[in-house]
Amino acid sequence: MKNIVAVTACPTGIAHTYMAADLLRKGAQKLGIHIRVETQGAMGIENQLTPQDIAQADLVLIVSDIEIEQTARFHGKTISTASIESALTDADQVLQDCLPLC
């Protein structure tokens, strides 16, 4: 099973961040992918990825329209990026696009 860690963030950080996170979780379940999603919203970082989560992940997926916090921890990992809108429109496709990179 592929293992992805994801970070979602948007400019306001009160709705789209959580919507995208929810859709990624649902999409991953459908596609048989193990995923952990960290949200960086107006409340700050929630469900923060642990160093162990990141180390064990095959890929880091960043779904954001803004610069995310704490990018240094992903150094050396394969990183894929997507816009919030693409995740809201078709989260399954965003995840499928990642799979060849894993």
Binding site: I14, A15, Y18, M19, G41, A42, M43
Partner: peptide, 30 residues
Amino acid sequence: SPRGPVRCIIAAALPKPASVKMIRAFTNLS
């Protein structure tokens, strides 16, 4: 939206910076 049409609209307008209490309430909602 590809997520379909809507019948209920909850429009929220917050000042910036908003209080932590206010942000927490709206993240609870979303």
